[in-house]
């Protein structure tokens, strides 16, 4: 019993130390509602949503990017001039990650993790990771033009985000005149 009492005290002390040393700095961008993401991406006056049907013509390329079909018949997007915004989902380890991606002139200008449900790989939610996607383009081989450095212990979530980045760039090409 004494041991457990000591452990409890040590636990409380170590947590208190961690809090006092680094403080609580919640990241307001971590869980961003999809509506808010779209609104923010178009200076608070978003265009009406449009719909892109996942036709047989698009399927082979989508499959090449994701490694599987996109699990929807149509994908909703928001477009204004050369800018388009997408809300897409992909499985990380076992759960879907919801990501908002804005593409302009064929380049990613914004990528945010909107909903993260995995118990590991929390780092991919943060801007220190997602900012790497900015300026990425789609190569002829349907890969990202930029190297995205991974996160130790979050390889599966990192790969899921890389796939979605490529998918958003590809879909953007399809809806641009």
């Amino acid at each position: 019993m004494n041991t457990f009492a000591q452990i409890r005290i040590a636990l409380v002390l170590s947590l208190a130390l961690a809090y006092s040393a680094f403080g609580d700095t919640p990241d307001e961008d971590v869980y961003l509602a999809p509506d808010a993401f779209i609104s923010e991406s178009f200076d608070d006056s978003p265009p009406k949503p449009s719909v892109l049907w996942v036709t047989n013509e698009l399927k082979p390329q989508i499959q090449k990017i994701l490694g599987h079909d996109y699990p929807a018949l149509r994908i909703r997007y928001w477009a204004q001039q050369s800018r388009s915004a997408w809300i897409l989902e992909e499985i990380g380890k076992v759960k879907p990650i919801t990501v908002g991606i804005v593409v302009e002139d064929g380049k990613i200008v914004r990528l945010k993790v909107l909903i993260y449900r995995e118990s590991h790989g929390w780092e991919v939610k943060h801007s220190f990771f997602t900012d790497q996607f900015i300026e990425a383009e789609l190569t002829e081989k349907l890969r990202l033009s930029k190297n995205i450095d991974g996160i130790s212990g979050a390889t599966l979530s990192v790969n899921a985000l890389k796939r979605l980045g490529g998918l958003a760039l590809y879909l953007h090409q399809q809806v641009q005149p």
């Binding site: 170590s14 947590l15 961690a18 809090y19 403080g23 609580d24 929390w122 943060h126 220190f128």
Partner: peptide, 16 residues
């Protein structure tokens, strides 16, 4: 177990 993370990339774990 308890975990605290922050947006600077730090994570603190404690487990009994």
């Amino acid at each position: 177990a308890y975990r605290h993370t922050n947006d600077a990339g730090w994570a603190f774990d404690a487990a009994a």
